[in-house]
Design a protein around this nucleic acid. Structure first.
Length: 706
DNA sequence: TGTGGGACTG
């Protein structure tokens, strides 16, 4: 042992030398050379303290090499059987993220002495903690099973870890059974009222979406801590229930507790998750006024709200706060900054933040990729996505996850580049990444855009098998797809089968029936929706007004437009005016349509003029058409459709020279009408073809769904 | 000898 001590001293740096005095003390005052397998004598106890000190220094100074050295030195002394040091080594390795080494320490000592491992709770708890901290919840639960097998009963330190792992582990469809069985064990072993254990139980039930059980446990807690309250508020936040998060927050104050920065962060997060951005910002201001410490986590939440609300000024202020508050090294804060800049068309800034990040995790990549995709830069998104699989900083490759894939697929679908969107979806199947409701919704948008009925049906069958069809996002996508494929019966079946319907479900049904010219059915759905208590929004009225227009329901349309403004207090927007002009114009009330445009309280845009021009053409009102076309050329000179429309109108009247003149003037301003493009699905293949072009070979879209 | 709560991406 003396030799070991000398070796330590000679290998140590100056800072390591400091505890040497205590080591010399222990060497001079105790017997040397005694070795016991089960216990540590007095001399070793001093050595244990010494090694403990060294290990502490490894953590403080982030010295991995020193840790390895210290470990090997421990092995060369009898202290390697110290339960405390073994546990310490496990926890230090875990802090370095070296779970495998931690496990090796645990396994080695287990093999050395079986009776030792059954008695040593400290070691069990440290290996449990190591796994939980690293997010290895399933492994933590496996250890718990092992514990039970060898007859070790968890204590007040072990149970919180096991409970936490139960709520977060991936165990098939539901964790509920596992959670209740662990809960039973907690009660059996008398930890029903143990503060730390119950706090974890609250969190566990929150994680699996059972806030009802968490509430019952919370209400009968004999003593609560600040943590108990915070776990409840964050539980509601994670379940997107800002009403109850807010109630819990109020109740906390009412019962004399002061919400701290964590409580506030959870409250902000709950409002953010409910899509109530305005209130999140209001609460954030309130939090600052009250002098509550603003944490990096709170900043990240508020920044994510800014990104969604295009609140660029607030975000710029927060950026300053990030720099001042020293949060620039927090990758999750920088990730949300990337989103704010990316989504506000400041791609350069987003890119420089991204490249400045020391450690880019999957979220960082997704932040930039989804920013590109959402700003319509799908090629940039795809380029970055393609870079992901490659080697970065010499480290193992980072694989795109479901969020990455969905962002790219959604980006292409939103730009109308449906084939590319579906092709990437196919690649995703090959990469064996399972899609989720968001992925499926984007894919269905692409199917709808291509009227790819067969592929749409195939996706429908797939989501039915995986129970994703119960998700409202997927249901709405299916309804839209079937409507765009002119299959209202199938759309209706999906609608009827939806457990929960939201405003989108109703709007999609109304718009679908309207688009297919089934105005009466669209109206029936509109009135049903109101009768069961849904409040229509501006999109509903665009759908219902355009349904009236397609079905020639003029009186009904007029009534609804009036109801929208007076009854539902929805401000009429450009789309609503365009619908009304279309409604009147299509019905042959061209003069009234002209009058309607003249009396509009806002300046008409090209869509409104376009609707008017269309009706002028339908009813061969050349004078009004010319005047209207002039307005359009003034607003949008590149609108080729208007040139064609007016040229065709002249042609229809036999005014060939005028017709040719218009076409010529379009050419002189450098316009070329882009040819019409259509898709047709034949035998699970989508064929794209241009007007006047033969069918191409078609892209293979069959048998994608595994 | 050691306990817990808050975050960012589709």
């Amino acid at each position: 042992m003396l030799h070991a001590a000398v070796t330590i001293a000679s290998h140590s740096s100056n800072s390591v030398l400091r505890p040497f005095h205590s080591l010399s003390r222990c060497l001079t005052t105790s017997s040397i050379g005694q070795n016991s397998k089960t216990g540590i004598n007095a001399a070793d106890s001093g050595l244990v303290d010494f090694f403990d000190h060294l290990l502490q220094q490894c953590i403080n100074g982030d010295h991995l090499r020193q840790l390895k050295q210290t470990h090997s030195q421990i092995i060369h002394t009898s202290t390697f059987l110290s339960p405390f040091l073994a546990a310490r080594l496990v926890s230090v390795y875990s802090k370095f993220g070296l779970l495998k080494d931690a496990r090796k320490v645990f396994d080695t000592i287990s093999k050395l002495d079986e009776s030792f491992i059954t008695r040593n709770m400290l070691l069990w708890n440290s290996i449990l903690r190591a796994n939980v901290v690293q997010g290895e919840y399933n492994e933590a639960l496996r250890l718990y099973c092992e514990m039970r097998k060898v007859g070790v009963l968890p204590d007040g330190f072990g149970f919180p870890l096991i409970v936490k792992a139960s709520g977060r582990a991936m165990v098939g469809e539901s964790n509920y059974k596992l959670c209740t069985s662990v809960h039973c064990h907690v009660v059996q072993l008398g930890f029903r009222d143990h503060m730390h254990v119950v706090n974890e139980l609250l969190g566990m039930y929150g994680k699996i979406g059972r806030m009802d059980i968490a509430c019952k446990l919370f209400d009968r807690m004999p003593v609560r801590t600040q943590i108990s309250w915070n776990v409840m508020v964050s539980g509601f936040a994670n379940n997107s229930d800002c009403e109850n998060a807010s109630k819990m927050f109020d109740r906390m104050e009412l019962e004399g507790w002061e919400p701290n920065c964590v409580t506030w962060t959870s409250l902000l997060s709950s409002f953010c998750k409910c899509g109530r951005g305005g209130e999140t910002l209001r609460l954030y201001r309130m939090m600052r006024e009250k002098g509550v410490e603003v944490t990096a986590e709170a900043v990240a939440v508020v920044l994510s709200v800014c990104a969604d609300m295009n609140a660029f000024c607030t975000a710029a202020n927060l950026h300053g706060y990030v720099l001042k508050g020293g949060f620039s090294n927090y990758s999750f804060v920088v990730n949300s900054l990337i989103c704010v800049y990316g989504k506000n068309c400041a791609a350069k800034e987003a890119e420089s933040l991204f490249s400045g990040l020391e450690s880019k995790n999957i979220v960082s990549w997704n932040a930039l990729i989804s920013s590109y995709a959402e700003s319509g830069l799908c090629d940039e998104a795809f380029a970055l996505f393609s870079q992901m699989g490659k080697l970065h900083d010499g480290y193992a490759e980072l694989k795109p996850n479901v969020i990455t894939w969905s962002a790219v697929i959604g980006g292409f679908a939103a730009k109308g580049r449906f084939e590319e969107s579906l092709e990437i979806f196919r690649q995703m199947q090959i990469a064996e990444v399972a899609g989720n409701p968001v992925t499926i919704a984007s894919t269905l948008t692409a199917c709808a855009g291509l009227s790819a009925h067969c592929l749409g049906k195939e996706i429908h069958a797939h989501v039915t098998r995986t129970l994703l069809d119960k998700k409202v996002l997927v249901g709405n996508g299916l309804i839209n797809m079937y409507m765009k494929c002119a299959c209202p019966e199938e759309a209706n079946l999906v609608f009827e089968g939806l457990g929960t319907r939201d405003l989108f479900s109703w709007n999609t049904m109304i718009a679908g029936y309207g688009m297919l010219g089934l105005g009466d059915t669209a109206l029936k759905f509109f009135y049903n929706m109101i009768n069961i208590g849904f409040k229509p929004d501006e999109v509903t009225f665009v759908a219902v007004l355009s349904a009236c227009s397609h079905a020639g329901l003029v009186a009904e349309g007029r009534k609804l437009f009036d109801q929208m403004v007076r009854g539902f207090r929805i401000e009429s927007q450009m789309e609503h005016y365009a619908c009304m002009v279309d409604l009147l114009g299509r019905a042959g009330l061209v003069l009234e349509a002209i009058d309607f445009v003249k009396n509009m309280p806002i300046e008409p845009n090209a869509c409104v003029w376009g609707a008017l021009l269309n009706s002028c053409k339908m009813y061969k009102n050349t004078d009004a058409a010319e005047e209207t076309a002039a307005q359009i050329f003034g607003l949008e000179p590149e609108m080729t459709g208007s040139y064609m429309l007016i040229s065709n109108l002249y042609a229809a009247q036999g005014r060939w020279e005028d017709s040719a003149k218009v076409r010529h003037s379009a050419k002189t301003v450098g316009l070329k009408k882009s040819p019409g493009r259509s898709w047709i699905e034949v035998k699970k293949k989508v064929h794209a073809f241009l007007a006047g072009e033969a069918l191409d070979s078609g892209m293979d879209i069959g048998y994608w769904i595994v």
